[in-house]
Design a protein around this nucleic acid. Structure first.
Lengths: 119, 119
DNA sequence: CCAAGTACTGTGCGTGATACAGTACCGGAC
DNA sequence: GTCCGGTACTGTATCACGCACAGTACTTGG
């Protein structure tokens, strides 16, 4: 990630609002294809039009957690030129967790919307 | 809160999914009328049909935070009988924060739904 | 009279997001 | 030919929030 990253647009969302969702978000980007770390960062940034940029430290901490839990597998790419890239592949367990997390997210939305009486 | 509270229904939502929203939820219950702590606990539990029970420790920690930040004001009720009750009143600053938080929540939903490709 | 419910308070811990710091390689500008 | 910005990965330390757990105290019903 570029040094001195200033907030891209808006004033960055309170990190706690996304808390608990980063694992799911990252797993989501891996559903269709293997990706390397920085690629995931860009995928998320671009998908949200720059509204949300996952922090580097957060992203790699997430990889450590997901790997430890067997939800993703990592392997080094064979770049013959350019810097090394570590790719991540979602496992079957990861897909199952992703599916469940999306359900939980739906339920969470329902609960919060009920409590805030957001129509 | 009753001792030995077992999960009411479902298996309790991962606390991290609600994280960052408790302030807003509590402020929301105070929009229409002053309430005391345990009443807020019940209000939230009943509004969600028992799907979400804010934990006692979480609730009172939230009150401390909201009070410190001037978003609510507390006063002791004058119950002539029954146990003492501490009532909370939302301040103008609290209302402003609530309104902003609801906006942030809407934005957060949009972002997560985009990233999860939830339709 | 004592158990269960109501009601408030405080301490300490685990986890996730992040700040911050560091390493390393590449391409283009000057 | 070197310096800078971008790409790319890693590690350590910190902070806040939610919660488990523990404690106090009053009240009502069996």
């Amino acid at each position: 990630m570029a040094p001195n990253t200033s907030p891209p647009t808006g004033d960055a969302f309170a990190s706690d609002l996304l808390r608990g969702h980063t694992d799911t978000i990252v797993l989501g980007t891996l559903r269709t294809t293997d990706r390397y770390g920085f690629e995931i960062y860009k995928t998320i940034r671009d998908a949200t039009g720059g509204d949300y940029e996952i922090k580097e430290a957060t992203l790699y901490a997430t990889f450590r957690r997901l790997t430890k839990d067997g939800l993703v597998e990592a392997y080094w790419g064979d770049e013959t030129q350019g810097g090394r890239r570590k790719y991540y592949r979602i496992t079957d367990a990861g897909r199952a967790v992703y599916t469940q997390n999306v359900k939980d997210w739906t339920a969470t939305q329902r609960i919060i919307n009920t409590l805030l009486e957001t129509k």
